[in-house]
Amino acid sequence: MTSSPTPTRPNPIQFVGYILGRTLPASMQAWVRDDVLGPGGSRRFLLRWNLPVIPPLLLFLLIPGPVWLPIMMILLLLLPWTYFSVALMPIWQRHRLQQHGLDPGLLGVKDRERAMREREAYERRHGRVA
């Protein structure tokens, strides 16, 4: 009797739960790491955070008057919402990593590697490396 392999990607129900903040099984840690920190992770976060806000904001278009007025009201709410979602993205990423049992130190690995390369290049340029 063969057992089915452990899933490494969430099924649609698990994915919706993940989007709403639930924790996935430990077998999906690699997928969570790639979702949060991988290529396109920031774009996915912003889409998941901002798209649900747009339909209620579109209700402003039902306000009578010149069309520029509801558009300005939408922008008045959407721009700060987007600004704060970008500002709070690292906090959310750290939370998601901790929630799934991953090291939150993974969050700054790329930045630390880039800083180390820049420092080495600086030291080579100025003769501080033997």
Rank of each mutant, 00 (worst) to 15 (best):
W81V: 11
S4L: 15
I91G: 01
R117A: 11
T82D: 01
P80Y: 12
L58G: 03
P52D: 08
A130H: 09
R114M: 13
H95W: 09
R125Y: 10
R124G: 10
L24S: 01
P90R: 02
P90N: 02
L46G: 08
I19W: 10
W81E: 12
A87M: 13
G21K: 09
R44A: 13
P52N: 10
F15D: 05
G65I: 05
T8G: 04
L76P: 06
R9I: 12
L106K: 01
R117N: 11
L47N: 10
G17C: 07
S4Y: 04
V36Q: 02
Q98R: 15
G17K: 15
H95M: 10
L46M: 15
Q14W: 01
R117T: 04
L37S: 10
R43K: 13
G101W: 09
L106G: 02
R48M: 08
V86A: 04
P104A: 09
A26C: 04
W68F: 12
E123M: 12
P10C: 13
G21N: 10
N50K: 06
V16E: 07
S4A: 15
L77I: 14
R117Q: 12
T2R: 01
D35Y: 11
L61Q: 06
L77E: 09
L58A: 10
L51T: 14
M1W: 10
T23S: 13
P39V: 07
Y83L: 06
N50A: 15
A26P: 08
P66F: 07
L88R: 15
L57I: 00
L106S: 08
P104H: 09
L88Q: 05
I54V: 15
R48G: 14
E123T: 02
P5D: 06
L61N: 05
V109M: 07
W49L: 03
I91K: 11
G21P: 12
M116W: 06
R124S: 09
L24V: 05
I74C: 03
L51V: 15
A87H: 06
P56W: 00
P56N: 02
Q29D: 02
L46Q: 13
W49Y: 12
R96I: 09
F15L: 15
Q99A: 06
T23P: 00
L106R: 05
W92I: 12
L47H: 04
P90V: 00
P55D: 08
I63K: 02
Q93S: 10
A30F: 02
I19A: 14
F60L: 15
H95V: 07
E118W: 05
R33V: 01
W68K: 10
A121R: 05
D35I: 06
L58Q: 09
F15T: 02
P55Y: 06
W68G: 05
L102N: 00
I71C: 12
L76C: 14
S3K: 01
Q93K: 15
V67T: 04
P7G: 03
L106H: 05
A115L: 14
P12L: 11
G105I: 12
G38W: 04
A115N: 13
V109G: 00
V36G: 04
L77H: 13
V109S: 04
R119K: 14
L46N: 09
P55N: 03
P70G: 12
A87N: 00
S4G: 06
P70A: 02
R94K: 15
